[in-house]
Design a protein around this nucleic acid. Structure first.
Lengths: 340, 340
DNA sequence: TTATCATGTGAATACGTATTCACGCGGTTG
DNA sequence: CAACCGCGTGAATACGTATTCACATGATAA
């Protein structure tokens, strides 16, 4: 059957308790005994049973990642895959594994949070939140469950929730100014659905970047995904008073805008400037490159995961509850006209 | 503290055993007692402790997904994200969760398999394999650990391993023939690194599609990722005896080919036909669309996951060990010349 | 009536580990 | 020399659940 610490103990002529101590690196056990036990362990190819350890130690060694999925759709936005990739990088070599959860509806999200919380399947959660007010988070908090939010905790919760985010307002302001400085006269914004925090923040930053000029009629909302963006952009660009530059919520949607522009014979960046967020690999797929704001995902992940593990392991955390990771504007061909 | 079955039992005036029976839907418990227990359960917001259940029942409720990552790189190929998305779809509503593991080097893979196997962290594995011969799989098999391979089990193992795959030979043959019928004279192949099964299979299919004509000098190898593909394609296309069509191992790499072609002023599909595999959302990002072979990932996932759960739950499986999911050639603009 | 049996429930146990408690031993201190 | 202490180890226990075993009850059959 299965090798247990009992078996090891018997073979090494020690007690099961000692085997456990050796495995957990207890300093008190004599060197020769430790060697003897280690020898038997490697001979027998023993590995600890994580199920038993979980029960006893109250730790599962699992980190949960909860991402919201566009309703009915898939997560083919490279942002998602990138996130997972970087989390795996961080976790590699550490005694934690990643458990991915996806939620679409708010009710399923409720259920998932509740299950994860009460069944203790994971030691902690990384939440990637987009919707502004989320009562479920309050529950996690009330129960003292370890979690870190990637995103904006909004208002009053700022000081009580551990979160990692970019300054989306500033980033949007910066890229908007870049577009105006590049010579575009009517800079528009293609935002996400209403009520999504990250979108709202960028709208705010866009407004700041448009300082003074009235720009409310240059803001459009649109569902996630590049197909929806393509269709919306088609409508926008068909209008005679169309913008001559579009700031788009993310790269994936921006690719839709590129398609729409091409479909109407508009040349990027001459007839239409395009910039967006995420700086994913998609940006290089566009001929002369897509100008985009890098969110610095590796650092976001490092910070978020690092903090989560500290919370789980009850270690002190230095720094503010809300960590802001600097963004970087990556200027590429989609906003650099050759003739200006 | 934490609510346990003991607490429920006390409140409902029954034994802990009865609570457990109610929870597992044991038919023998009286209706009124069951109701009483259920009432207390919902009052107290009780949820089972999965750690204890895992220890006792030998089931963790976790499915492991092991994907090989290009060395040093990230998994920004949408194929990967798609896979996860579809797996989550399948698992939604079932009592299983997904644990994602990534391996880069062969040695780390060895360690991951071994840990997953011995520590019993997961109930079963979905392996996405690309390298032809893999001794680690044999170990899993020898230990009787439940797993399903997405990919080609190669030769002798075919009859002993549960696997789900496309017929990559046939698919490559078909798309090659499509390119030739579209009027391309020198159809080349940009394959992956040597020794990758999926790549080798497609090379074979390509050869069949090129029936008769000597085509060995039209096959190139290249690392994964669109940057590597772009650079390799640049070299290929610079050569005066360049191919006038390229079949590429996957969409992500094909986007690199598109970039290289544009960089040299070649027009797709007129000067260069491009076709590839995966039929990911990237295909729509290319102006007139990228011709690609759909692998039918939803069905692959459904089949693989369905079988894995059956294996885990000891239910009978009907059908052959090696399941072949049909592919579908999706012809788009990158292979349809307007002037032919 | 008595013996047999089906049925529903509680008591007891096992799963494999981490940890507390107790103990023996050698050495130090007064 | 006695009392004490630190240290290393084994025995015992607890974690929360699923399951086996035993038993009480009531029904059925002889």
């Amino acid at each position: 059957m299965r090798v247990t610490q009992q078996d090891i103990a018997r073979l090494a002529n020690v007690s099961q308790a000692t085997v456990s101590r050796v495995l957990s690196g207890d300093a008190r056990v004599e060197t020769d005994i430790k060697d003897r036990v280690m020898a038997v362990i490697s001979e027998t190819n023993y590995q600890i049973d994580v199920r038993a350890r979980s029960l006893r130690s109250k730790r599962t060694g699992l980190i949960g990642l909860v991402v919201k999925r566009p309703p009915g759709g898939l997560n083919d936005d490279p942002f998602f895959a990138n996130l997972i990739s970087h989390i795996m990088d961080f976790l590699a070599g550490r005694p934690y594994h990643l458990c991915v959860e996806m939620v679409s509806s708010a009710s399923s999200q409720e259920a998932v949070y509740d299950e994860l919380l009460r069944t203790r399947r994971v030691d902690g959660l990384i939440l990637v939140e987009s919707e502004a007010r989320d009562e479920r988070i309050l529950r996690l908090q009330a129960e003292g469950f370890p979690f870190v939010l990637i995103g904006n905790p909004v208002e009053e919760r700022e000081s009580t929730i551990w979160s990692v985010d970019n300054d989306n307002v500033l980033a949007a302001k910066t890229v908007t100014e870049h577009l105006r400085e590049a010579g575009y006269q009517r800079v528009g914004l293609l935002a996400g659905p209403k009520g999504i925090t990250v979108s709202d923040d960028r709208i705010e930053g866009y407004r700041q970047g448009m300082s003074g000029s009235d720009c409310d009629d240059l803001v459009w909302h649109c569902d996630f995904g590049f197909l929806a963006a393509r269709d919306t952009a088609s409508d926008i660009l068909r209008n005679p008073s169309r913008p001559d530059a579009l700031l788009v919520l993310d790269d994936f949607m921006a690719m839709g805008v590129v398609l729409a522009a091409r479909g109407q014979g508009l040349v990027i960046p001459e007839d239409l400037g395009v910039a967006s967020f995420n700086d994913s690999s998609l940006c290089d797929l566009f001929e002369r490159g897509l100008t985009s704001v890098s969110l610095n995902i590796p650092q976001i992940v490092r910070t978020a995961c690092g903090r989560l593990l500290k919370i789980i392991e009850d270690k002190p955390i230095y720094g503010p509850r809300r960590m802001i990771i600097p963004t970087e504007l990556c200027v590429r061909g989609s906003t650099t006209r050759r003739d200006v």
